[in-house]
Structures are given as C-alpha cells and as structure tokens.
Design a protein around this nucleic acid. Structure first.
Length: 277
DNA sequence: CCCCAGGTAGGCT
DNA sequence: AGCCTACATGGG
C-alpha cells in the first residue's frame, strides 16, 4: 500500500486500498464523525485524524502520523488477501468490490475492551452515544475534542456513573475494573497465541465469546477469529451452511475452514449486511 | 404498544 | 459442558 509522510500528516495514494467510509462505517470503531467539510474525523485514545479526499488518494491530517500508520495498518497489502478470499469464496467478489478500501484497524486494547463491552446487545447508534458521553464527562479537553478517559480515571468510575451515561445493565460490568486491570497488567499479551489470549479476555467481566473475538481482531491484529453476532448468524445460514449450529459453533467452524482469512471475511460480510446504502 | 440491537452472566440441568 | 432467561436504554 502506497503512502508517505507529509508536513501535516500522511498521504495515501491508493483508493482501492484505503476508503475512510468503508474503514470507519464497518462496525469496528465507534468514535468518528463527518465534519462540516464532509471529511471523516476519527478519534483514538487522545489522538485525532481528519481524512480528506484529494486527487487519486487521501490526505490524513494528524499530529500523530506514526500512530495512525499503525492504526490504519498501512503496511498491510490487501490485494493478495482479497484475491485469496475470492478464490475460496467466489460469491464474495461483488461484496468485496462494494467495500473496496475497507481495512481492519489496529486499535488500542483498553479502548477496544470498553467499547465492545458497551456494544453487547446494543445498536451502533446508542453505542456511539454512550461512548461520546463517557469522553465528554471524563476525557481530557483537547484542541476541539475530548480524549478517551485514561485507564486510571476509567477504573475509578462507579456503577452509578455508568448508569448516568446510559450504559444500562452494562454499568455493572464497566464498573468492575478489577478484572480489566488484571488483564491489562499481564505481560507480553500481544505475544500470546490467539487461543491463550482469548482465554484471558474471557476473564474480564462483560467479555464473552463474541466481544473477545472483536478485541482479538480489531486490537490484537489476530485474523484467525470470526466474531458471530445476530448478523453473522444470518450470513452463516445464507452463504455457508444450513446445518444448525449455535454462535460459538459457527465461529469455530468458519475459523477452522478459513484460518487467517476468517477475520477479513467476517468484516467484509458484516459491512455488506449492515450498511444502509 | 411492540420489537430490536456487533451478547453476557448466572442459574439450571 | 450446554441450554435458558433477565437485562437497561433509545430508536424504529
């Protein structure tokens, strides 16, 4: 994927490999918006990037270029991944073409855990609402926006607070900072194999099989996972098999079948199923 | 009024 | 181990 550093951020040259709408609207991240210029603006921890279409590519305006090179995983080439998927699953050709430039992000682990605990049995609009209220109430004031709360601040918040920002019954999970701290303080997390890391994630209150898979995929860059939610359950019966399986079994079945392509396949399909237009 | 949303914890068998 | 259900809240 072609990109280089500029005075005010990053220049991305290839539109087939990078499309902000497809990257941000595919359900892997909740803190982004379209500003008055019509540009996508994305937030991660205390950092921000504005993405402007320009010529044959995009300009990414940010003070933290190196952070966002990693965040957008710009050194991964998607052309071979797409080819491999289409080779194994020809029906995916059209779906992949419609979501050209979709990329799986490498997000912050702490922010991902919190965000996806909130996501459980919830809709994207309300997930965004709750997370925005969290930042508005507890995040550092920065230049025109709020940071995500630090771990220290977050872990001091009460169940009552989380109810106030509309987290509902998930307030109880969010307030259980002990299991979260225990996980985050473990050594060499990113060196662990997927299965081991998954077992550790499941010890966090509010993290079940689906949320654990999302964290593995969107934060730890593990691609041998297949998060199964209501949408993916439908997709499984539509495209893959009529054999009755529960969500955990569907996930296991597809990971065994597609290995390190599973994560990508899942994300293309989720976007295809949930996008409005 | 209903039903649904990127499910999970706790209790039961 | 695997199945069942309650669960807050905002939007359609």
């Amino acid at each position: 994927m072609k990109y280089f550093l500029t005075e005010c951020g990053i220049r991305v040259e290839n539109k087939e490999e990078f499309n902000p709408k497809h990257i941000l609207e595919c359900g892997q991240i909740f803190r982004f918006e379209i500003n008055s210029k019509g540009n996508y603006v994305v937030y991660s921890l205390d950092k921000m990037a504005e993405i402007e279409e320009c010529g044959d590519g995009y300009n990414i305006f940010t003070k933290d270029a190196n952070y966002f090179i990693n965040f957008f995983d710009l050194d991964t080439d998607y052309s071979s991944i797409k080819k491999e998927i289409i080779k194994k699953l020809p029906f995916m050709q059209e779906i992949i073409e419609k979501s050209q430039g979709l990329r799986i992000l490498k997000q912050d682990v702490f922010e991902m855990i919190v965000s996806f605990i909130v996501s459980a049995n919830n809709n994207i609009k309300r997930i965004k609402l709750i997370l925005n209220r969290l930042c508005e109430r507890c995040g550092e004031v920065l230049d025109g926006y709020r940071a995500f709360p630090t771990k220290e601040v977050f872990c001091s918040l009460s169940e009552e607070f989380f109810k106030e920002i509309g987290a509902g019954y998930r307030a109880n999970y969010l307030a259980d900072s002990k299991s979260l701290k225990l996980f985050l303080n473990k050594q060499d997390l990113s060196a662990m194999p997927t299965i081991t890391l998954r077992q550790e994630l499941l010890k966090i209150k509010g993290v079940g099989p689906k949320v654990a898979d999302c964290i593995l995929l969107f934060a730890f860059n593990k691609k041998d996972v297949f998060p199964v939610d209501v949408w993916m359950e439908r997709v499984y019966y539509e495209f893959f098999s009529k054999e009755t399986r529960n969500r955990v079994q569907i996930s296991k079945y597809l990971v065994e079948k597609y290995g390190n392509l599973a994560g990508y396949i899942q994300q293309y399909l989720f976007y295809y199923k949930t996008i409005k237009n």
